[in-house]
Design a protein around this nucleic acid. Structure first.
Length: 592
RNA sequence: GGAGCCGUAGUGUAGUGGUGUAACAUGUCGGCCUGUCAAGCCGAAGAUCGCGGGUUCAAAUCCCGUCGGCUCCGCCA
């Protein structure tokens, strides 16, 4: 075998005259009849090979047979390219290799799509031939970035005394949270393991075990519907520490992200990060993961319009709601149709309508101005800092609806007007989340974060009396409007954890059955502890500048949670089901 | 569970409101060609228009259903 002496892009002009052996794939071939150029691609990049009968007739004859993606070994001398034939687009564009010996390791079928960047093909085809898709430089680059960032994280945490500890993939199903992926147990017929939604309970138990500083690059599984940023299996950087408070987590994470953004992207990010309470974020941006790359803050007008004649506003307030406005700067030029489009969107998001005022140099144009006194209108204009050319948008309803509608309008207009600086990295901590919310479907309280999150000390007394008023010691980290990670200080006393379960409507029997081992562990000397988990795929997607996490995952699944390459999932043999004691209620259909 | 967009040679598209031997680019195959790097020139092959049904004298085109891909809502402690 012609064994490689150099990677393609290691060859430099200084090596002229030297013999090299290269291994790789034929990227493109340009056959001039009497002279053949082949771009050879390996893991490092491209280099041009030259096949000429004057150099070696046999190699030239083989060169004529080469086709795209054939796998070859080539031996030859490095030459400086003749003047005016240099290629500035190639790292190796000053040189070429005159091949005098070539070995075809393997021929290749014509690939179903081009092995190059920026292709526009059906994504299913890319997934079905993922091994070809990953040959494309941009996809390779993403996996390299993923490796580098993961390495940098391990290094960083190791230096600070963290232990990387693996937790089970086969664990037990718990009642709260997402739908579990289940794995039947052969040894215990009729019983199932669940794949972990996160290592949450195990990492807390590790704190009980005195590990004090833990981390894991952990695969997590959730059987919910997919999105561009959601896959059924995904990777979290999971961290937990003992004897710490919120500030310790913030400090660690800010240092850590500064480190990996430098390592992975050569970007400097400013620390400490901004902080907003959940309340502030919802009030100003209508979202608990605000995109702070542009301003456009939402303005509360409730007090100004409480007594106005306009029933849509005053009525909403009487019903316990709020009125807020958004100044869509420069959107005064919007046509009636564009405003109708925005109204349509607002209705989708739950609004009952969208009031608007067009501020022009000739005055206000709007269907609603007639309901306002001059004084009230002036207060509104002043509160929204309205200037000619602006379009003012208003929403009146219950607070959560108003926040959602105006928050989404803000984002939608931000996208349309390209308000966000594409290069900006706006990181912000969101703190003081509510501990609980009421689930109308289940008719009970559910944890906003998870059931192990500690309430704030001063709110604990209200846990049973005013559950919705209790604030959690939870925090999220948001980058450019995407939730990167979240965590909390945990409950570490049995008594409080039991109260929490009770508020969530779990019976003592359920608690004993599902979480008895955890409560028991808490009785054996549990330190105060807390942690955080990051969605690695999302973080890498943002770092790589991609729009889907599928592009930073080697073998992702389609929106229907299937793998086109392996054709998983698939029916299984009756014998396998028998061993597991499983009878199907639906007929397993053989795939094509 | 719901909404939207899409499905035509290997690939990307055009054609779509009734007449086509289904067009273009690129790739593939063959020929020519000694400085290309998206090589060039000449030629050829390649599509039951996702699948099933319906309407019609006639369907890629209209209707119904279905499958698949993507985006979003619900869901994702």
């Amino acid at each position: 075998m012609l064994k490689r002496t150099h990677m393609a892009t290691e060859i430099t002009p200084q090596m002229a005259g030297q013999r090299v052996v290269l291994n790789g794939w034929v990227d493109t071939r340009r056959d001039h009849g009497g002279l053949i150029f082949v771009d050879l691609r390996d893991g490092s990049g491209l280099v041009q090979l030259v096949f000429s009968p004057e150099v070696n007739q046999e190699a030239f004859t083989t060169g004529e047979q080469l086709r795209g993606e054939h796998v070859i070994g080539a031996s030859g001398l490095v030459r400086i390219r003749p003047e005016d034939t240099e290629n500035p687009n190639l790292k190796t564009g000053l040189i070429e290799v005159y091949v005098d010996q070539v070995e075809v390791f393997n021929r290749a079928q014509t690939p179903p799509f081009y092995i190059e960047d920026n292709i526009d093909v059906d994504e299913m085809l890319r997934m079905r031939y993922r091994y070809l898709d990953l040959r494309r430089p941009e996809m390779r680059k993403n996996l390299v970035l993923r490796h580098q960032v993961t390495q940098a994280l391990r290094e960083f945490l190791d230096e600070r005394g963290f232990l990387e500890i693996e937790t089970p993939m086969l664990t037990r199903s718990t009642p709260e949270g997402a739908r579990d992926y289940l794995v039947p147990s052969r040894v215990h017929p009729g019983e199932f393991f669940a794949l972990p939604q996160s290592p949450q309970i195990f990492k807390q138990i590790l704190m009980v075990a005195g590990m004090e500083k833990y981390f894991q690059v952990a695969r997590c599984f959730r059987d919910e519907d997919l999105r561009a940023d959601r896959q059924p299996e995904f990777t979290q950087l999971d961290i937990e520490m003992s004897f710490i408070e919120e500030e310790d987590i913030f400090q660690l994470v800010e240092d850590m992200l500064a480190h990996i953004f430098k390592q992975g992207m050569n970007r400097d990010i400013q620390t400490p990060f901004r902080r907003l309470t959940y309340q502030e974020a919802m009030r100003l941006y209508g979202s608990d993961r605000p995109d702070l790359r542009f301003g456009w803050e939402i303005v509360d007008l409730t007090e100004i319009v409480r007594e106005v004649e306009f029933k849509v506003f005053s009525g909403a307030i009487k019903a316990g709601g709020v009125v807020r406005g958004l100044n869509a700067r420069t959107c005064g030029s919007f046509s009636r149709k564009e405003i109708d489009d925005l109204t349509e969107l607002a209705l989708d998001w739950g609004a009952r309508g969208l009031a608007w005022i067009n501020v022009t140099t000739e005055g206000l144009k709007s269907p609603i101005t007639k309901f306002f006194s001059d004084e009230a209108m002036n207060q509104i204009l002043s509160a929204l800092k309205a200037e000619p050319g602006d379009l003012l948008l208003f929403c009146a309803d219950q607070e959560d609806v108003v926040a959602r509608v105006l928050g989404n309008l803000r984002l939608e207009l931000g996208r349309r007007l390209h308000l966000a600086d594409e290069d900006a990295l706006e990181l912000v901590w969101i703190t003081d989340f509510p501990l609980l919310e009421y689930d109308e479907d289940q008719k009970r309280y559910v944890a906003v974060h998870h059931p192990f999150t500690s309430p704030r000390e001063e709110d604990i007394s209200r846990l049973e009396s005013e559950p919705l008023q209790v604030r959690a010691r939870a925090y999220d980290l948001v980058l450019n409007g995407t939730e990167l990670g979240g965590g909390s200080i945990r409950i570490h006393r049995r008594e409080l954890q039991e109260r929490m379960f009770a508020v969530l409507g779990l019976t003592p029997e359920e608690v004993a059955d599902k979480f008895g081992f955890m409560l028991e562990a808490f009785e054996y000397g549990t330190p105060p502890h807390g942690g955080i988990a990051f969605g690695m795929d999302r973080m890498l997607m943002l770092m790589a500048g991609r729009e889907s996490i599928r592009d930073v995952i080697a073998f992702p699944k389609t929106q229907r949670a299937a793998c086109p390459m392996t054709a998983a999932p698939s029916p299984v043999a009756d014998k396998q089901l028998q061993e597991l004691g499983i009878r199907l209620r639906v007929k397993g259909v053989p795939k094509q």
